[in-house]
């Protein structure tokens, strides 16, 4: 009944102010209206509305057949999502925390990532694996990691991390429509921090997944970030601009894989300096790839006026809650790093 009413909403668009949780909820809602093969499955996503309330209200609207409370079995969730996708559905599978997605690792790596190759394009898997990640919300062990590298390192998977409500809405809808498996990581630090106003609606136009996004143009230094760190970086850039007169070109890379180094390298050729800022560990974090692609391209390498600097979390297990904020790279560290590359050689 609720769904019939909702059908009438289909053509409607409206401008709404939302936080990240509301934006993700609305994106799934609109995508389910837009395409009746889209369904949600995961632990506590139905009656409870997700432990962060991300799927709140969706079971009431779409019923237990499309918003499914699963047994407590992550490999089962991932594996059946693959099967559902093989047979004509577009599943959005939720993993309660990225720290509990590893029970399903072999389904991601051995099957989701390889099905296209292993059938020579005969079977493709349009599915989204949603998982909250990241520190800063006083959570327990296994609840605060930022291990996107696992997915970035696996050919055949895409990895997307939004950094604002608007991007969460748009990118999730694009991910659902993407023909390949998307590892969709939600920065839970941003879940309820800040709202944005933007246009939504089941049938509005949705652009496909983008490359790197230049969020602010600048001349002196390129700062690359994503996810929750991007918001910290944006604040640091304001400080740098206002207090130090440093003109930062700020780039968000919501799609970490495939990584759009063309846009980033072009920016670095312009500024001659690059600082990467993320809360993933340093070794083999995204910053390693960004730096490598800069240095392996002569035309970019020889335009560098300072070494590429990574501001990241250290290579240690995320500490428990009293030390996690010290562990997380903060605004001050980014400001210092940018000043350091600006002063390099002088």
């Amino acid at each position: 009944m609720a769904l019939e009413l909702a059908e009438a909403e289909k053509g409607k668009t409206e401008t709404v102010e939302m936080n990240v949780i509301e934006a993700i909820n609305r994106a799934m809602d609109d995508e389910m209206l837009h395409d009746d093969t889209v369904l949600i499955l995961g632990e506590d996503v139905g009656k409870d509305g997700g432990i962060f309330r991300v799927t709140d209200g969706l079971m009431d609207k779409y019923g237990k057949e499309r918003v499914i409370d699963t047994p407590l079995a992550e490999s089962g969730i991932a594996g059946t999502a693959i099967g559902l996708a093989v047979n004509g559905m577009r599943p959005i599978a939720e993993f309660q925390f990225s720290g509990f997605s590893y029970q399903a690792f072999h389904q991601f790596e051995s099957h989701a990532a390889r099905m296209r190759k292993r059938t020579q394009g005969g079977i493709t898997l349009p599915l989204v694996m949603r998982m909250p990640y990241g520190a800063g919300v006083r959570a327990l062990e296994h609840h605060s990691e930022s291990r996107e590298t696992y997915w970035i390192h696996t050919p055949g998977l895409k990895c997307v991390i939004p950094s604002s409500p608007r991007k969460a809405y748009w990118l999730l809808r694009a991910s659902v429509r993407d023909p390949d498996p998307v590892m969709w990581m939600e920065p839970k630090y941003l879940y309820r921090r800040g709202k944005e106003e933007f246009e939504v609606g089941p049938d509005i136009g949705i652009d496909p997944l983008p490359g790197a996004l230049i969020e602010q143009e600048g001349d002196d230094v390129t700062v690359v970030s994503y996810g929750a760190s991007f918001q910290v970086a944006a604040k640091a850039c304001e400080t740098l601009e206002e207090e130090k007169g440093i003109s930062v070109e700020l780039i968000d890379i919501p799609v970490l894989s495939p990584y759009d180094s063309e846009t980033v390298n072009k920016s670095v050729r312009k500024t001659g300096r690059c600082v990467v800022f993320h809360e993933a560990h340093r070794t083999l974090g995204m910053g390693a790839e960004i730096a490598a692609r800069i240095t392996e391209e002569e035309e970019t390498l020889f335009r560098l006026e300072a070494p590429v600097v990574r501001v990241t979390a250290p290579d240690i297990i995320v500490p428990l809650l009293t030390r996690e904020m010290a562990y997380l790279p903060d605004q001050g560290r980014l400001v210092e790093a940018v000043e350091k590359v600006m002063d390099y050689g002088s």
């Binding site: 340093r282 070794t283 250290p314 290579d315 009293t322 030390r323 904020m325 010290a326 903060d330 560290r333």
Partner: peptide, 25 residues
């Protein structure tokens, strides 16, 4: 003690001191 990790520790500890970062901050 991995020397590269020790370097990260030193960098961070110096920063915490400069910036006044404390437990529970």
């Amino acid at each position: 003690r991995d020397p590269y990790l020790e370097r990260q520790r030193k960098e961070l500890m110096d920063y915490w001191e400069r910036a006044g970062v404390e437990v529970g901050h």
